[in-house]
Design a protein around this nucleic acid. Sequence first.
DNA 1: CTACTTGCAAATGCTTTGCAGGAGA
DNA 2: TCTCCTGCAAAGCATTTGCAAGTAG
Lengths: 149, 149
Amino acid sequence: MAANGRADEVHVEVEARLRHLDQRYTRGRRAIIDLLVSAGRPVSISDVAEGLPDLPLSSAYRHLADLQIAGLVRRVAANDEFARFELAEDLTEHHHHLHCVSCGTVIDFTPSAAFERNVTQTVDKLAETEGFQPHSHRLDVLGLCANCH
Amino acid sequence: MAANGRADEVHVEVEARLRHLDQRYTRGRRAIIDLLVSAGRPVSISDVAEGLPDLPLSSAYRHLADLQIAGLVRRVAANDEFARFELAEDLTEHHHHLHCVSCGTVIDFTPSAAFERNVTQTVDKLAETEGFQPHSHRLDVLGLCANCH
DNA sequence: CTACTTGCAAATGCTTTGCAGGAGA
DNA sequence: TCTCCTGCAAAGCATTTGCAAGTAG
């Protein structure tokens, strides 16, 4: 199954990057990464608690913080006030999010390259007129997911 | 100055909408709305505390919550974990945000109508293929503001 | 062995709420 | 004068951290 292949590649990359920071790729960290890979969308802390019931919450928070610092995980601002996390785009691909305003679920989606080009161009141009130096962008679509309508 | 004219219109609208919910447009609520109008960009709770030092924080939170329920104020998910608030788009116009990753400031910007049309079309189409019913979208640009580079 | 990790429990800090007094209409 | 609003202090709750024991290399 493709997901396993993907997970393996990710593990290799994560381990290398942690090593570079004199950090170890331990069981707990690996479990978090596995969860993020298999979820394929941003997960909340309660998703982690549910998926990894033996991992103490404090460790989950610490792992996620460490992985963020290492640039391997990204915090996603959802519409509710709960933190969500996903693999950094280096480990996946550029994508955006659909946020269900009813149940809070966040789903990944990847628009066409042409659309992305248009967004990037517009962003670069507009941002320059504001004296703003853009690094990246994110597009969130709010609405109701398939389960909620 | 245009801002005063705007503020007046906004006050009238806010008062009417609160009335409709049997709520009063009191000094504290008015102060919050004034702050949001004059800021012209999303403000954090600490911005409120700074701008309205005599307003107790609990009242600020309560006013913002009430105004949100009334559909007059919108909570903005920033990149940091601090809640920010802005006037709802009914009271302003559709726009997006530039987020400074260095100082956290959020700046409004309005892209061209053509661009918006493209975004809306793409969002509608893509979202449908996911069984997702889109209501609205937001585009955040991350980077460095003029003060931070 | 030495440095990084982890668990637990306690602490932190933003946000919310109960309640009694205050104010708008 | 009835209902909504406000302040204060206390509570809630997601998240963080100190510290001592565990473990990778």
